[in-house]
Design a protein around this nucleic acid. Structure first.
Lengths: 350, 350
DNA sequence: ATGAAAGCGCTAACAT
DNA sequence: ATGTTAGCGCTTTCAT
């Protein structure tokens, strides 16, 4: 028996064995009471065990449990950039959903780099994570890490299904079309597009398709397009580019709130104003959109619902359904940037 | 020996034993190769092992490693709200720093609730996390979970030291004073204060003290104070309150960028403009401040440095230094909201 | 240079 | 109702 030096404040780790000894039972019984099963324990015995746990300050060792069970009760999340409010909200919602189910959340940033995504995937895999939520920065993430692995993955922020992997996303095309249609209803005939662009721009972004849909349906010509990075700086430079020339569109559809904020900054700096000179509708519905000036009319993604959904899939008894694609609808949130709302009547009292 | 049914695509988990068998060595050798130590292995043997690993698709099991080593090579981060851009940046920087050192990061949100903070702390502890970074929403977080534990903690976003625990933070007082002094230099005589307030508002926020310092030093009277929650909504309602009356200050110091954004929304809705009618200086220096309209003059916290510092402490061989307080300076970033910069000359080409 | 084996703390099937 | 015990996959000391 090892005795602790009295001056040491760091007690040696208390194990289930110690508790068992103290309570005068076997370690199995301790397990039963800690996990509330799988066997019943007599109330009196259980009380003694609980007491022992209390007195000794026993904490179960999650690593041992993870090893035994083959599950660390932990999910992994990969986003391009958790500093992007849209992904920050996503991460927050995922953490919440996971936490409610007793899962911890590992968060990782990929900066939309294939290499980093892969590293994190590999890392998560070696940690035996119970599932990973991948909001890839790439339109076509490399999932070869996953073959032959039993680590379930769900793809977030997707516009379409992907062979063998469950995916979740919003209907980008319909959403964008709704937004552009709204601009059309405001009487705009020249509607530009500021689009994001992913690192490996292989496939079309469906928001662009939606923009086109609405234009064609109204018999309008394609306005100017600027493709830029998915951040404020990208929006800013796109805005400078699109609005400094003499022939500028009277409205733009912007592929994310973050970019829209940059676009508006550019517009303001050019001495123009929103929505008087340029009307804007953007995409995402992040908190950023509500508190920009003017507040942005935007297509809100149901982030919490999607996060819940993904976590549910990953933590369900049966595992996620291969290849399913869950599509969510966006909601057009009308604020000032499209020209609808007057300054003092923001839906709040004046 | 268990045979895998041929139609199954899920191979049974490959262990170090399998690799050893395949390479014709012992499992110890595999360990030596994988971990590059502690023993040397003959190049030829090592090559065989590497090959076996490749062929078999072996992945080390982190749970087993964690159990054996007593360390999951994982850090935990608790923030009040990862959706707050300031904390989002912090989380991002911490993740980066941790990742560079081979640590994964568990992220948790406390919503500034003592109970949640404690739950996460307990959870992290049972996971044997190598260290936790706690950006508490409370001025006086409950650290009783920690006694007798060997889980090091560092407190982030602190204005002062705390007995026995290393802390990191910015010099709130000096920073705030610098900001307010800047407003004074602009000629303002009536400078209000919008302060955040933590859930258990026991102690003074040092930003308030800094505001006072600058006022006194200039012989100015205390302007109006509104205390509100640390979010956009809080700033908004504070703004409505402070600026709708007839006697409104000509400038405000706001305790965070996030709140300042809310304050500006309120100001705009009241038909006032920034900085003409009201000059603003805020605190944090988050990306939000650069892209608001007008862009905010703000005291930038060196978030990445502090994150690096914290992670370094936690992952250092020696463990974090008990009770040390690391103070960082803020930097006054001048933009439009204080009245300094003209619209078209944002430090970029016009 | 390599191998055998103990054991990290836990769970649960199988005794009793 | 409770106890015994065999691993989970890994690291590392101590042989060889």
């Amino acid at each position: 028996m090892v005795e602790l030096a009295p001056e040491s404040t760091q007690r040696p780790r208390v194990t289930r064995q110690d508790v068992a000894r103290y309570a005068g039972v076997s370690s199995a019984v301790v397990s039963y009471v800690v996990n509330d099963g799988p066997k019943k324990v007599a109330p009196a015995t259980a009380a003694r065990v609980v007491d022992a746990i209390e007195v000794l300050g026993y904490r179960p060792n999650a690593a041992a449990r993870a090893l035994k069970l083959g599950s660390p009760e932990m999910l992994g999340l990969i986003v391009p950039d958790s500093t992007n409010l849209f992904f920050a909200e996503m991460a927050h919602a995922v953490e919440q959903a996971a936490s409610e189910r007793g899962y911890a959340l590992l968060t990782a940033n990929s900066a939309a780099s294939l290499t980093k995504e892969n590293n994190h995937l590999r890392n998560f895999r070696s940690r035996q994570v119970d599932g990973v939520l991948l909001a890839s920065g790439l339109s076509d993430p490399d999932l070869s890490q996953l073959v032959g692995s039993d680590m379930p993955v769900v793809l977030l922020n997707r516009s379409g299904p992907r062979e063998g992997i469950p995916t979740i996303g919003v209907d980008f095309r319909t959403g964008a079309a709704t937004g552009v249609r709204h601009l059309v209803e405001h009487g705009h005939k020249d509607i530009g597009l500021v689009m994001g662009r992913d690192a490996s721009s292989l496939s079309d972004d469906h928001r662009e398709l939606g923009w086109l849909d609405a234009l064609q349906e109204a018999g309008l010509p394609e306005g100017p397009i600027v493709r830029t990075s998915f951040d404020r700086e990208g929006g800013y430079s796109a805005g400078r580019r699109m609005f400094s020339g003499p022939r500028r569109p009277s409205a733009v559809f912007v592929s994310s709130d973050m970019q829209a904020v940059g676009v508006m900054r550019a517009i303001h700096e050019l001495g123009l104003s929103v929505p008087e000179d340029v009307a804007i509708v953007s995409f995402d519905g992040s908190p950023e959109a509500e508190y920009s000036w003017p507040p942005l009319t935007t297509l809100k993604q149901p982030v919490r619902e999607m996060a819940e959904d993904a976590v549910k899939m990953l933590t369900s008894r049966t595992g996620p359904p291969a290849g399913d694609h869950h599509v969510y609808a966006t909601e057009l949130v009308i604020r000032r940037s499209c020209g609808c709302v007057q300054p003092s009547f923001e839906g709040r009292e004046p």
